[in-house]
Write a protein that binds this DNA or RNA. Structure first.
Lengths: 308, 308
DNA sequence: ACTGTTTACGGAGACCGTAAGTATC
DNA sequence: GATACTTACGGTCTCCGTAAACAGT
């Protein structure tokens, strides 16, 4: 074994390469897979992680099975944000001079899409030469898409307190603009015993089965009152709203959704929350450095925003 | 010259070392000074910056005089946050096992100190063996002090909207707890023409001379309505409140201060703001991983907080 | 026995320092 | 002409790959 907690070495290399390796190992759960992902041999990965462990004086990943230790988990979280910020820096600088011929926008499935439509119609009429491409993305990967420069802006949605921002990324990493807020409703099967309630409290449903749809409802997972209750949960990993509603109608569980998304759906009753301490919120994410052309689209989008 | 904007190279090294070098160059305004600071030759620094410029395809610093370009400025901002986060990671991991014999707290000069005093009295009575050391710090360096592990917690103050957090660092970097809020007042010389006003609007004083005290009032600089008005400003870089008030009394300018700090001072009139859209706020900053002993002190401090 | 990680070792190359070159004040 | 940065070049040491040892399953 090694002399953990000795920490004789102070401030040695500790370069980005090593952090990337740690992160890949933690994500993949395997040195071999991480090596393949990064284009190294697993020996190299082993050495990089070993170097980190030596520097910090803590074991970072358990071997066999490969699992992060608490220290490794913590470091991996920091590493993830550092790498994200590096992506942002790269994206920002890479488009500093260039003026792109097209503007690419990503939209999350439940993000208020009428805003995007209206804004793009306006952009189209005033600037018909500008090509705009729209892509649907998972709210979990929306930040990374903007950060990496895969898209120029993203309409992201999630659950937050009223007038509170979604905390999607580090402060100052990306520019975010509030676009819309909608009340949250609990979607229940039409024959559910609570279907006639006027309003409903989340606590009432604390022990009820929920359908978690991480690819659809952004921050719902963390905010929903479902602790670690395996067995009672259904996870729907698709981006298809009708499918999710069908699951609800079939009685597999309740779902927390923005009101507009489940109005007048057969077999599903939508009941507003008692105390609207949580709302569904849509924000526009973009890099902080934008080209004039992107700026125009984003400005139009912002002008359409019902908030502020 | 070089082929800027060509950017043939994609994803080359770009390690932390280079970012540190860029940051030092930007801070020092000199390759030579940066080299001395980092323990390299200036040749090495030159090569590191050149490597970054090659990778990004942008010139990052102008030479002669050495000044960051817009791209360099942007990258340096990212670099600063990355290095800060690395400091936090190091601090967190380094104290994961250890249980320190003393708890070190930093206090900013205008941060509500009575909170600290009361909390420490309580800590002292319940845990007399625990050694607590207190240091006064500049609000500008408070975050770095906590991040680097130089202190375990810091009482920081600044100006923010009511019930809004000070945005001192990236979200999730450090834990922050609201401790107190105090109204802001404009400190004027006693013979100032506006001295008899009940309340005052910042816009009224937009063109008046201000005394800026960055070492005292944290976020006041950015929030105060003084744009770039050279000549009309006095900068007091000390941490001494009486000195600042003496400057105000001498008629050198107005200052934006928390009300408790300038109550009943000879020669100075304190006038509350018209619309209290800004308040003086004190927050407690600490690492997100705390040892049980630190946790106790922090808990007691939090319990003393008048907010929430 | 086999899969997967560590350790050993050697080579290619990155990185820094010395020193000469060059531009700006 | 002096100061300050850049470029050239060579040595060193890092870092990765190959391969062997090793440890769980």
């Amino acid at each position: 074994m090694m002399f953990w907690h000795l920490s004789i070495s102070d401030t040695y290399p500790m370069e980005i390469r090593d952090l990337r390796a740690l992160l890949a190992v933690v994500r993949c759960g395997s040195f071999t897979a991480a090596a393949k992902e990064l284009g190294y041999t697993q020996s190299a990965i082993s050495q990089q992680v070993a170097a980190l462990e030596l520097e910090f004086g803590h074991q970072l990943v358990q071997r066999r099975p490969v699992r992060p230790t608490p220290a490794g988990q913590r470091l991996a979280e920091h590493a993830a944000r550092i790498l994200l910020r590096l992506d942002v820096a790269r994206s920002e600088l890479s488009q500093l001079g260039h003026e792109p011929a097209e503007v690419r926008v990503a939209v999350c499935p439940l993000a208020a899409p009428q805003l995007l439509a209206a804004a793009l119609r306006e952009v189209r009429s005033t600037n018909p030469l500008l090509r705009v491409t729209i892509r649907s993305v998972d709210p979990r990967s929306a930040v990374a898409e903007v950060a990496s420069g895969a898209v120029d802006a993203a309409l992201v949605d999630g659950i937050a307190g009223p007038d509170e921002p979604l905390h999607l990324a580090d402060a100052g990493l990306l520019s975010s603009t509030a676009m819309a807020e909608a009340p949250l409703v609990v979607a229940l099967p039409a024959d559910h015993p609570l279907q006639n309630r006027e309003r409903i409290d989340l606590d009432v449903l604390a022990d009820a089965p929920w359908i978690v749809a991480p690819a659809l409802a952004g921050g719902a997972d963390e905010r929903a009152p479902t602790g670690p209750r395996p067995g009672l949960q259904v996870v729907y990993d698709g981006k298809d709203l009708p499918t999710l509603l069908a699951l609800v109608a079939a009685g597999l569980g309740a779902a927390l959704l923005p009101a507009p998304s489940c109005a007048r759906v057969d077999g599903v009753t939508a009941i507003p929350l008692c105390s609207p301490r949580l709302v569904h919120r849509t924000e526009l994410l973009a890099l902080r450095t934008t080209t004039p052309r992107q700026q125009r689209v984003i400005e139009v989008l912002r002008a359409k925003a019902s908030l502020r």
